[in-house]
Design a protein around this nucleic acid. Structure first.
Lengths: 339, 339
DNA sequence: TTGAAAGCGGTACCAT
DNA sequence: ATGGTACCGCTTTCAA
């Protein structure tokens, strides 16, 4: 309480407990060999002094930080939040902590972030997507720690991968539309290079539509991400204005699909009788909306747990250089009332 | 490329650039006094070696980590995500980084998290809410760094505060209901000690209802957080079953309000003609739902920017011990179609 | 503007 | 089971 304005160190604890600082260090680990009485005496002394271990020093000395650097495009996105939850759940108790950053869907921002993070000496790096600036790629390749790319299947992966083909996933929706008897199909969003996964979905949609010989011109741009309900509504308005006979619309995400749905509701257009709507991402929202929205589930949370497993496995196998782990997720369509 | 399997240090860069490591250190800061030519030579050498500064060592030596520890109850919550966005935007460029953890609405988990974080020697700590375990309070009080509590106005704040009264906020909704002519009012959620802010909202609702002499028994428990659309729907079902003549229902959050709304839609109950619904949090969802949901805006993002400003101000004024900064937000009602 | 030396607070490693 | 000692890679401080 009085006078002592300096943070106590191990040495202070050691002196009070009548041991060497090495013994204090050991007492603060779980498996270390310290006499039961000694340990208790040490912990009591530490408590008395209000001692808090300084990882900052431990990190330097042991060359381990316990950090896994993770970048996601946006915090405010239920899909990435789910991935993150999956990761932290799996990482809990492993001694690994997440150092989180978000890129705002910008590869330049990602580069800045990664550069910053590398200084913190993370033990592994998990990024979203497989598109990066050249410099960022180089930084990651030379980082010396496992790199996991998620939410995509990069053609030239940097290291490890937990993802799926966004193009293939989109095709599922086209198949579903066609099964339902819809042939005049449109796509909303996925028009900007900032959202490469959205781009891939649109590409997959187009390929599938063309493969069937259907009209492939019904595309509405939604502008730069994040694509939210507002853009979905505006895009649907445009879709209906330009191609009034469109029978089914796939949206780049459930958020945008919900926006499209509400636009129809405001206009008295019946879904799916007048127009069908499909989304992407299996958000809670899609399940609870009335009518419930048909969507594609890419197992956002599982991506996180698998990414964490990848990291854990790599870190516990020091000989695992030259190993490449690729976990491929298979997206599934969830058919609901909007189609 | 070959042989050199060790991460280069400043000394390596120094040798290659023919300077001392001190000069290299200076070259990596922006304002330091280093000759322009020298700096360029150093940066070139660093680039050549693929040198990345080791903050882990810098942190120890300078006793500064650049971390602001932040805890939020849940990642997957648009309100807290907004607060976080506000913080990171304000912190960008300040050299401060966020070390994020989420408590899952548990004070015990919060304690664990804070204890872990303190080892990393953050320069400031921002927590959500004013309820903590005794030990956690003590840890925060003795941390030696600024502590900011958010999203609440704690009776006995630990340090600084950026928040609002959740009880007062809830009263706004009661006022609004009464203005609209509704007198048989119900409340959904806010029934568990894990969500103290929800508890406060319910308390505020009850106080306001009682102050007006209205029936204060129409309360539905939604169980432990996170409260989502599903709980909102189930609770609305229960509300209608138990008190069919209820005229207006306030929900602990917009998510739960949306769930309640969809439940009515599925049952063919008209909103607001048959029953009115109010939410909390000003989520995008409330704005875009059809009908749009009346809600209370507590300026989630502004809480973040103010918290960041508080931290920045405190850290740039070393004499600011004994100062307590309290930023009080005034929530506002947003009247829409569900009332 | 630049350099030399002394830590920062732990842990690895080797003894005992 | 415990202790001694040499660092980990940077920054602080003082000098030139």
């Amino acid at each position: 309480m009085a006078g002592n304005n300096k943070t106590p160190t191990m040495l202070d604890v050691a002196r009070l407990a009548n041991v060497s600082s090495m013994t204090v260090s050991r007492a603060f680990k779980r498996d270390a060999s310290v006499g039961k009485e000694t340990r208790e005496r040490i912990l009591k002394a530490a408590d008395e002094l209000g001692y808090v271990l300084d990882s900052t020093a431990a990190n330097l000395s042991s060359r381990k930080t316990g950090f896994v650097a993770v970048t996601i495009p946006s915090i405010n996105n239920a899909n990435f939040a789910d991935t993150l939850r999956g990761m932290s759940q799996r990482l809990r108790g492993s001694g690994l902590e997440i150092l989180l950053g978000y890129t705002d869907y910008s590869v330049d921002e990602e580069e800045r972030l990664i550069e910053q993070f590398l200084r913190r000496r993370p033990e592994a790096i998990v990024v979203t997507g497989g598109t990066h600036t050249d410099r960022c790629r180089k930084l990651l390749e030379h980082s010396g720690v496992p790199v996991v790319e998620t939410w995509d299947l990069p053609a030239k992966p940097i290291g490890h991968v937990v993802g799926f083909s966004n193009a293939e996933a989109a095709k599922l929706m086209v198949d579903h539309f066609v099964e339902r008897g819809y042939t005049r199909l449109g796509f909303i969003g996925g028009d900007t290079s900032r959202d490469t996964r959205g781009l891939d979905r649109r590409r997959g949609f187009l390929e599938a539509v063309k493969a069937r010989g259907l009209d492939s011109s019904r595309l509405i741009a939604s502008g730069p991400p994040p694509i939210t309900m507002r853009e979905g509504a505006a895009s649907m308005r445009e879709m209906i204005a330009r191609w009034p006979d469109t029978q089914a619309v796939m949206c780049v995400s459930d958020l945008s699909a919900f926006g499209a749905l509400t636009e129809c509701q405001r206009k008295g257009i019946r879904v799916p009788e007048d127009i069908a709507i499909g989304g992407f991402g299996a958000y809670d929202l899609a399940e609870h909306a009335v009518p419930a929205i048909t969507t594609i589930d890419a197992s956002a949370k599982a991506i996180g747990t698998h990414a964490a497993d990848t990291v854990l496995s790599l870190l516990s196998n020091p000989e695992s250089t030259d190993v490449r782990m690729v976990t491929r997720i298979t997206p599934k369509i969830i058919a609901r009332q909007t189609t």
